[in-house]
Amino acid sequence: MRFMVFVRSPSPLAALHGDALRHAGVLLDAGDLVPGACGVSGYWLIDVRDHEEAVERVKRIGLPACVVEIRQVAVV
C-alpha cells in the first residue's frame, strides 16, 4: 500500500530527506512543497504493508514540532 505523508512545520526540515525511510526500502519519492501560510511543507511517498506500519515508520523519524498527515494513496 502506498501512503503520502505530508509534513508541515514552521522551520526548515532537514529530516525530510527521509534517510531512514530510504534505508528501509520503503521510500518511493520525497519532495518539498512551496512554502505556505503554515510554513515549510514537504512530503514522502512510502510503500508499506498497512497504515500501522506507515504510522510506526513516521514516528521513528526525529521531527521537530510539526503537523504530520498520513493518507493512503487511492489507486496503485
Partner: peptide
C-alpha cells in the same frame, strides 16, 4: 503481490 513488494523492498535495502 506482497511477495513482489517484499522482494523489491529487500532489493532496495540491499542497494543501500
Amino acid at each position: 503481490p506482497e511477495l513482489c513488494a517484499e522482494a523489491l523492498r529487500l532489493g532496495r535495502v540491499l542497494a543501500e
